[in-house]
Design a protein around this nucleic acid. Structure first.
Lengths: 338, 338
DNA sequence: TTGTACGCGTTATCAG
DNA sequence: CTGATAACGCGTACAA
């Protein structure tokens, strides 16, 4: 490994001269500076981030903690984060919390131990102790995808209320009256918001809200397949003929619906209409192409990264809450039954 | 931040006693040990990885450098890597080389500066200088996805020769004689292997090899859409009626074919049959479901991670080259024209 | 303009 | 069994 000492020896100066030269310190003779910088490049010198971080706390490193690294939804987000970081000389640690609070806590502690300058996190729950812990730890943090219920934080998220009401409105406009809602875990603020949007749309159109048409905890492909399989088989409190359309909280779970209905030889959209959420990139190639609510994922990622960097560089001022707008993407998974 | 000194003060012992207690050193009184370990847990103590790494070179950190973080193909791989690392108390840095050698070099240098104990890399090219550099740098490395042309390295990859010949054989067995090959960048060993497999299958079936039916450089969705768009429009040396089937080097580029043919109102598989490569998870939900060659991505990731850890722990012996086998997945994007 | 000394939080060695 | 001390590579204040 090439160190500053090695360069000093090579250049015939003291190592602190090298240090200053590399940081372009004006007090060093311009020629010496050039000479040393060139040498550093030739020898592929890289500052030892560990040493620098230990000394100055500037590790040029941030942590990104997400609920599912593999999901295309999160991929698009951290891809965008990576771009911004790159342009600013930062690198990211990625960790997967798998929707598990204990694992999330582990991840947070690891990240702190790794000396990250900041954190971008899609927290498992908006109410977990982890959030307090994080805030107390004073690590600069930007929350994405959902928002903890307090105002002294940075966050970027899409309003789930608007999203579900867009979806529901659209289905109603296509003549659907009995709409199954596949929602997230009960009691989570984000699930509540999602439910409220759904209810609001029903109410506006003077349709009755049927509590029994709401199912919770349907995150993930497997879960969604199993759930719909039960319903379609008649082994669930919700019967197959109780609804003509489905609103779901992710495209991935919409795929689960596709899979289950395929198995039971139901046709989408002929038997059931489906509206997804996220607009992950391949949904337009599905059979049928999925009608869904678009979340600006790239924007979420780049905004979050920029906010975090601002906050690290002390450029920003106060905390910021950014709310992005979802958009309806009409494709072929909804049938008009008017 | 909770440090070893802080714990020492809290526990009323010297900091070196704490250090030993945390490392479960036998020379420390068992009770003192327990007491200190408990305290550490209560205060959420985490060792400062920077300090540890600086001192002992054991950062418990590895680097993963891939060509496209967003592609589901690589997602599955690094998901699997992450699992293995987790179980071993390691964390990973992820970097995206975007199929660019200069960026790759940057990434390698960053990783070294970050103090990683090892590297898993899907190198941009099997012949790049970066590989020599990496080997000389003595960082433990596992190459995945393709293999540099030398024997003193660890690698895990799928034999592209077998893959393309599987695909080609299958198409021939379905009656296709004029098969377009969408290949990777020319002169890359992996592209050569891919071409050879294709040629071998043609030869076996006594079909002529038509050089003009091979196209290079068709990595990526956009590129693939553009290329096929040109061909379908008649603005390319290859004419739309010159082939009845397509073998491509990735599912992502197969999607590009779908998109272009959709635009030109060609039907898959009625007008053109398509065989993809990778078997990324949603290909079975495409319209039509994509016939493709499966690569064992999860296995690639976990094998690579385990090999790297073995090599780091000095458990392993010599370098290992693992070659995995691809499998044909028959679905609906190929039509029999016999 | 250049060089010296110190500390960041660990680990490792040696002395008590 | 426990404590003191040096070292890892860098950045910075201060001395020369």
């Amino acid at each position: 490994m090439v160190t500053i000492k090695r360069l000093a020896k090579e250049a015939g100066v003291s190592f602190s001269t090298v240090a200053k030269a590399l940081n372009n310190d004006e007090t060093i003779n311009i020629e010496t500076r050039r000479r040393i910088q060139l040498l550093a490049k030739q020898l592929n010198y890289r500052p030892n981030i560990l040493a620098r971080g230990l000394r100055s706390r500037r590790t040029k490193t941030i942590g990104v903690i997400l609920n599912d690294l593999q999901s295309p939804f999160y991929s698009e987000i951290y891809k965008a984060i990576g771009e911004i970081l790159d342009h600013n000389g930062y690198t990211m640690f990625l960790a997967d919390s798998k929707y598990d609070e204990k694992l999330e806590k582990e991840n947070i502690l690891s990240m702190i131990g790794l000396g990250v300058e900041g954190l971008i996190i899609s927290s498992v729950s908006e109410m977990s102790d982890n959030i307090d812990f994080l805030l107390k730890s004073l690590v600069k943090t930007v929350f994405i995808d959902n928002r903890p219920n307090r105002s002294d934080i940075n966050c970027v998220y899409v309003d789930h209320f608007v999203a579900s009401s867009l979806a529901t409105n659209y289905l109603i406009s296509m003549g659907h009256k009995d709409i199954l809602l596949l929602n997230g875990p009960k009691n989570l603020p984000s699930s509540c918001r999602y439910l409220e949007g759904y209810q609001k749309s029903l109410k506006e159109e003077r349709l009755p809200f049927k509590e029994e048409l709401v199912v919770y905890d349907s995150i993930g492909l497997e879960q969604s397949v199993n759930l719909m399989d039960q319903i379609f088989s008649g082994n669930h409190r919700i019967k197959p003929n109780a609804f003509s359309a489905i609103v779901t909280l992710s495209d991935v779970s919409a795929i689960g619906i596709y899979e289950a209905s395929h198995k039971h030889r139901y046709s989408i959209p002929d038997t059931y209409s489906v509206v997804g959420y996220d607009n992950i990139f391949f949904t337009k190639y599905l059979n049928p192409a999925l009608t869904t609510i678009h979340q600006p994922k790239e924007q979420t990622g780049s905004l979050a990264a920029n906010m975090l960097l601002d906050s690290i560089m002390e450029r920003g001022g106060d905390e910021v809450q950014v709310i992005l707008s979802p958009i309806l993407i009409e494709r072929d998974s909804v049938k008009s039954i008017k």
